[in-house]
Write a protein that binds this DNA or RNA. Structure first.
Lengths: 308, 308
DNA sequence: CTAATTGTTCAATTTTATGCAACAATGATG
DNA sequence: CATCATTGTTGCATAAAATTGAACAATTAG
């Protein structure tokens, strides 16, 4: 027996003052409404309504139960609607996990802008380069979105591309003067390379595309770190050549603190992904944030796939 | 979909931290519990649980919904149990309608005694001789029990005999001296009779049983009233012969203010009935009251059907 | 008293809930 | 790093309800 339904019938009958009109208001048969009341009375072991063919009155227990029903329905109105609203209206807390360097350099600005647009939304931004381990993070660490560079094999997540980021090979002029700037990708193997350890082990192989096509070079990781900021510092200090997102070194390239290596070759651009659980419906806060971030980055010309 | 059931599943899953053990605790299959959560999420349009095969975590909306569920369940515990308890434990208010004379002379004492035994019970005693009109009174006037002398044709009520009351024919010695005491039932037709107008029109015919068997006499209502107290006063004042419950005139008969008329004949004893709605279960307060009243009256020798 | 209206009961029918088995997915283990 | 046990999900057959329409009982208005 569906108690919610029987309760609804009971309330309706009392309000309308009759089984017949109560039933018609609910779009049910009199027979069923009668059964509902009977079931309810059997369940409670108490008579709720004193009824004759012409008249209807609540018993004392009926009055108490009516109050209870109305209270429950009022709470459903309140709580369920509030929850339901989060489907279309961002609310609550948005928990984002993002790479350290990207977070520190840019995402924090984007997040602040987003927060201003969503005063009802609390935002929690965590910056870590912990490799993403599948849906585990969402469940265990209570995350809403994870931003990352590498794709996942997870089947129950959605990976949405935010932008395609430009990567560059660069080193300090001092290092290049000292060690000699490489002329071919293959020459990189003899150089001191600064490697991001978090972009999968695959990346100890660097891929470049030039006039001769795509080339893979296995490089020697003279120095490795889990943050582009560290790699940038190492490069500026003349420790070697690094492969790094362009956004991390724009200032250095402009000021001449760093120089592009192998300028005739290009480093493969990499997508930046927003990963979130695959659910029947995506929470509005997640959707809104991903949209915002995408627009924010494209507007600032982060995306090499888009003209900007 | 039974929302109470799905809510129960949801709470259980969260508490146990797993669909599997949650389902087994509820005695349901994992499949069903999984459906319950899905239905709930579809209903709310929101994901409640971030789940992977090894781990389980509430989303923000899930946390809010869990609170809601627990609140509702807590209220069910409280309210429903309180209501259910009235089945076995008298509580609330007991509303009794009784004939004026009986109420004034005896019932009020009985009710006071009952009230002392039931401190949690509020009692409302209304004394009226309004003829009982069927289940109407229970519904319209919000009554629990009606005490009366005449049986009803109502089919949806229970009529429980409290006691069988002795009735007597009596008059003042002064009247009998003046008008002559009747020797036969038939002689009553020539007397001035004091009639209770509320004991149905039938009662203008008085029935007596004597050595010659049962006799019916159509009497002349020289005086009629809706209360035995009034009839008693009239009789004491010498207005004529009245048929009256013995309980109303015990003192007068003892003191000699009134005398039995036709002592060799007997007035048919009449049952005093407690009438209450026919429900699947009778409220404890009604049951307790009827039981108490029955015992109380038998103890005081009101019942001619019982030795005492 | 009659008749119309109301609540209830009982049958049949539709709908829904439920469990089993196969499946997909994930993470612990060696 | 691959394997496998474990977990949540899905499809399908079945069992269990909810639901209705019609006959019924009961009550009151005219």
């Amino acid at each position: 027996m569906d108690r919610f339904r029987t309760m609804e019938s009971f309330v309706r009958v009392v309000r309308s003052g009759s089984f017949t009109v109560g039933a018609s208001q609910l779009g049910l048969s009199r027979a069923l409404v009668s059964r509902h009341i009977s079931d309810l009375e059997a369940h409670l072991g108490v008579r709720l309504l004193n009824r004759s063919t012409r008249s209807l009155a609540l018993t004392e227990e009926g009055t108490a139960y009516l109050e209870f029903c109305e209270k429950v329905f009022r709470e459903i109105e309140t709580s369920e609607l509030a929850i339901r609203r989060t489907r279309t209206e961002p609310a609550g807390t948005l928990k984002v996990l993002a790479p350290k360097s990207f977070g520190a350099l840019h995402l924090s600005d984007a997040v602040v802008g987003f927060a201003k647009l969503q005063p009802r939304l609390r935002i929690s931004l965590m910056l870590e380069n912990t490799p993403y381990r599948g849906t585990y993070d969402f469940a265990e660490r209570d995350l809403d979105v994870v931003l990352c560079f590498s794709t996942m094999r997870g089947a129950s997540v959605i990976e949405e591309k935010i932008v395609t980021l430009d990567w560059v090979l660069c080193a300090s002029p001092e290092y290049l003067a000292r060690s000699g700037a490489p002329n071919t990708p293959a020459a990189l193997a003899d150089h001191s390379c600064l490697v991001h350890i978090n972009v999968q082990p695959i990346d100890v192989v660097w891929r470049l595309s030039g006039p001769e096509g795509s080339v893979s070079v296995k490089v020697r990781a003279a120095f490795s770190a889990d943050s582009s900021l560290t790699l940038r510092k190492a490069a500026v200090a003349g420790l070697g050549i690094t492969m790094i997102p362009r956004y991390a070194v724009t200032d250095e390239l402009a000021s001449g603190a760093l120089e592009i290596v192998l300028p005739r070759h290009k480093v493969a651009a990499r997508p930046m992904l927003a990963v979130y659980p695959k659910a029947v419906v995506t929470p509005a806060k997640v959707q809104a944030f991903v949209e915002y971030l995408k627009a924010w980055m494209i507007e600032r010309s982060f995306d090499v796939a888009q003209p900007g």
